[in-house]
Design a protein around this nucleic acid. Sequence first.
DNA 1: TGATTTCAATGGTTCAACCAATTATAGTTT
DNA 2: AAACTATAATTGGTTGAACCATTGAAATCA
Lengths: 242, 242
Amino acid sequence: MREFRPVATRRAFEEITDQIRSRLSRHALRAGDRLPSERELAGQFHVSRNTLREALRSLEIAGLVELRKGATGGAFIKEGGGEAAVAGLADLFHLGAIRPKDLTEARIVIGAEVARLACARRTAADIELLERNVQAAEAATAAGDVERRAAVNYDFHRLLARAARNPVLIVITDALMEMTRHFVERVGYMPNRYVMPSRRRLLEHVRAGKGEAAAREMTSMLKRLQRFHLARVEETRTKGDR
Amino acid sequence: MREFRPVATRRAFEEITDQIRSRLSRHALRAGDRLPSERELAGQFHVSRNTLREALRSLEIAGLVELRKGATGGAFIKEGGGEAAVAGLADLFHLGAIRPKDLTEARIVIGAEVARLACARRTAADIELLERNVQAAEAATAAGDVERRAAVNYDFHRLLARAARNPVLIVITDALMEMTRHFVERVGYMPNRYVMPSRRRLLEHVRAGKGEAAAREMTSMLKRLQRFHLARVEETRTKGDR
DNA sequence: TGATTTCAATGGTTCAACCAATTATAGTTT
DNA sequence: AAACTATAATTGGTTGAACCATTGAAATCA
């Protein structure tokens, strides 16, 4: 009935990462904990230091541990921050598996829901952070620093996701903004006089807890941005064809 | 004005992965391409084979290359499939950074939008696949095979996301289903007589292209499931406290 | 006390060798 | 000629020992 599973040639370093992952799942290892040194771990696992290092390297890339040099160095368990998931999605964008219009569409879909949830859950501290962010964006706009304004604007979305209090949406939002950043770097920054007034309105909706209004504002702003972006892609592509 | 950036102690293997990543971005390397052997690459980069292997290992974990043994083996560029992003989010769940209620909430938010988009873009082939999936689920239910039914149900969401034709949402959906799978494995499968009738209705909405109705059906089904799940978590937790 | 030097621990890298899986190829049998 | 088989070549996987570079704490000195 059941199909055979392929004989998995388990590599030594995979066995090691699995053992460490399982300790993480059982919370026998927690953020901030330090693993023994490479030399000692190699001894415990009965593998060479090179093999152990491949295991640590793969855990590092997966975002589970951080390796520090020096006398008090070693492998430290990282706080689960989702950098690996973010990097994974960014890689997909690099590979061309994600087109700009897929990215903007996903931002519209998810941004609206994030705005809605943020309205329901934001605290005074969240609003304070958002307020400061908008002020910083306004200052950057006034100073004509489009690069800085772009960076601050990415942060707005990140802050809003954090106000929505859902780690899944936080990681997804971070990934979307990281991809957007790469995208904008490629096609160039674009001043846009619609964004800041919209941002102000959105902030007031969030402050007032008006979820529907916030979602609508976010959607319309992102759709307008989408048109800008995709037009810019066409330009770039046309100019790029030589 | 600008803050100093910390002096980055670039490690040799990072330099290597960056060079390969940049070739990927420029499409100088494409899916299916084979990199030279480890020994030759080590020579080209002027590093030892161990260092080169750490670089390849990290690319492998990032889901960019696949390593095969044997005479025709080597490092092959993988099709961008998003496994790394999926694994990254799954790790966050393992680490406890994502609670079950965060997961179900994200599924509700994203599932509804996926259903809506799928209605607008599904082809006859998509509907055919979904139809077969629902039949398989009904068969598994009739046979009382809850494990198989769960697996088939995860596939339904994956298929629906593919019908929505957005790779970002596909990867996100895959990640959500992977987390759900781990979650269900932990708390146990639960027969639920609501799911299959709802699935039928949803399929008909998708077939008819009724996006709003499909989104509503998806939302209400997931909310019902959410209540089941979270109740189950409480049970498990209570029993687990000893 | 406070600055400086010394030193031990740790990750980063190298080298040389051998193991294990895989496949192309030459050889053998039918 | 076709099918099977043994061999060899290629490749990733692993080992062990050595050395370098960084870091921070302990020892030393002014």
